[in-house]
């Protein structure tokens, strides 16, 4: 890799601009995404910026279980984001449709419609998990653009109180995709 490519790769990792899209979410995840930009978590230290237009964005953050209404919008916005790009599915909803499973208003999960790079589980995930997911997505994006090979999606372990991480926990408040759902998504 020559110097320019190295600089480009580094810059891509250091400047992920987000576009946030709501695919029928209950609003829990959206609030956590905004919280990750707030003074306490301050994602701007990693160069993260929430952009108003999908044309400016590198990373598409999608929340919610993908309702029928949202599908076309999500596909359009995905095409409007210019490459190299990455998709982060925030919360358990876009991964598995979560508590809304089997609802007839849903067309989820998200992987049926667009490729996803990072799953951030949790209902809702903590802001630090979202920041970590975005940072991982930025790394994936830079690497993929440099090497031009596909990279398998990442399912982050659940971070939070009372959870071991390898989540099959059924621990009441925790509703991450169970480990087999996660591996199903990964395939």
């Amino acid at each position: 890799m020559n110097l320019w490519n190295k600089l480009m790769c580094y810059s891509r990792r250091r400047s992920p601009w987000l576009f946030h899209m709501n695919g029928g979410s209950c609003n829990g995840c959206d609030i956590e995404l905004v919280a990750s930009l707030s003074p306490r978590y301050d994602a701007e230290q990693l160069g993260v910026r929430l952009e108003g237009s999908p044309r400016h964005a590198d990373i598409l953050c999608i929340t919610g279980p993908i309702t029928h209404n949202a599908v076309n919008a999500i596909k359009t916005v995905y095409d409007q984001v210019l490459g190299p790009k990455a998709v982060v599915a925030i919360g358990s909803c876009p991964a598995t449709t979560n508590v809304f499973i089997d609802s007839r208003t849903l067309a989820g999960p998200l992987t049926k419609h667009i490729p996803v790079d990072v799953f951030v589980p949790g209902c809702p995930p903590r802001p630090d998990a979202i920041i970590q997911g975005v940072a991982m997505a930025a790394g994936i994006l830079a690497e993929r653009a440099a090497k031009k090979q596909p990279i398998a999606p990442v399912v982050m372990p659940l971070v939070g109180p009372g959870c071991s991480g390898a989540c099959g926990c059924g621990g009441g408040t925790c509703s991450t995709p169970s480990s087999d759902a996660a591996s199903e998504v990964q395939q």
Partner: peptide, 24 residues
Amino acid sequence: QGRIGPPFMQPFYDFIKLLGKGTP
């Protein structure tokens, strides 16, 4: 706002990254 804010080179990284992106 009581945050730490972006690193010193941030506008430079943003500029380089934007140069490497596609246009519609």
